[in-house]
Simulated assay, not measured.
Amino acid sequence: MTEEYGFVAPATVHFDDLDALGVLHNARYAVLVERAILEWWDARGWAFAGSGPTKPDVFNVIREYSVTFHVPIAGTGRIGVHFWLEKLGTTSAEYRFRFLSEDGSVVHAEGRRVNVCLDPATMRPTPWSDEARVAGKEITKA
């Protein structure tokens, strides 16, 4: 599954991701989008390895997270997590995301997530590196 912008990460819904109704538990959406975004950055050298981050930009936190649910994801199986950078500010990054059926025909949920890059010494916002800005252009919606 491909999209015109961003990246679609394949994901698997497991039995322990389901709630008592047999649908993907609402809290698992945040976990799945987190994994998708982290795996994308990890493949490009931004990760936690050994005792800390491989690059300064890895030290960031989520400031906001919202999701709107459209069609429940019922049962286990494969889905797609489509995400992109909507805006990369000085110290913040706004991601948008969609949860898609495996064939891409159904949008199960969509949302927004904002990360803020922090200085590990001060725990205050700090600018993203030029290197991260260049890499982020690969998934920025034009």
Rank of each mutant, 00 (worst) to 15 (best):
F69S: 14
S129A: 06
A121F: 08
R112K: 05
D119W: 00
W128G: 02
F97H: 02
W128E: 05
T54Y: 01
T76M: 10
G52I: 03
T91M: 10
P53F: 04
K87S: 09
F99I: 07
R124G: 11
A74P: 15
R78H: 11
R113E: 14
R112M: 02
F59H: 13
T91K: 13
E102R: 09
A93H: 12
E102Y: 06
E110Y: 00
F69V: 11
I62G: 12
R98F: 06
K55F: 15
R96F: 06
T126Y: 07
G77A: 03
L118C: 11
D130E: 12
G50I: 03
E94G: 10
V106M: 06
K55Y: 15
G104D: 02
P125W: 04
R63P: 13
T90H: 03
R96M: 08
P72W: 08
D130A: 09
A49G: 05
S129F: 05
R78A: 15
R113I: 10
E64V: 09
F59K: 07
R124P: 01
S101C: 10
E102H: 13
P125V: 09
F83C: 12
S66V: 12
T91F: 07
R112W: 01
P72C: 09
V107L: 00
D119E: 00
P53L: 04
T54S: 02
F59C: 11
T91N: 06
P56K: 03
D130W: 06
R78D: 14
L85Q: 08
P56C: 05
A49L: 12
A49W: 03
L88P: 06
H82E: 00
R63K: 14
H82V: 00
A109S: 11
T76C: 13
M123A: 13
Y95R: 05
S66K: 11
D103H: 02
W128T: 06
R98V: 09
V107Q: 00
F69A: 15
V114S: 06
F97S: 02
I73G: 01
R124Q: 07
L85P: 07
T126M: 14
E131D: 04
W84M: 11
S66F: 12
S105H: 15
I79S: 03
N60K: 04
G50M: 02
G111N: 00
V61M: 12
R63D: 14
P120G: 04
S105Q: 08
L118G: 09
P56E: 08
S92E: 01
G80S: 04
D103M: 01
R78F: 14
N115D: 13
S92Q: 04
D103G: 02
Y95W: 06
F99D: 01
A49I: 13
G75H: 05
T76H: 12
V61S: 13
V106R: 06
E131F: 05
L88T: 01
L85E: 11
W128A: 02
H70T: 05
R113K: 15
E110D: 04
L85Y: 09
K55D: 15
T126K: 15
P125G: 10
L100Y: 02
P125A: 12
P127T: 09
P56V: 01
E86V: 13
Y65W: 12
S51D: 14
T91Q: 10
E64D: 11
Y65I: 11
L118A: 09
I79A: 03
E64A: 07
D57Q: 07
G104L: 00
I73D: 01
C117G: 13
I73M: 03
G89S: 08
S51K: 13
H70I: 04
F99P: 00
H82K: 00
G50Q: 07
T90N: 07
H70N: 06
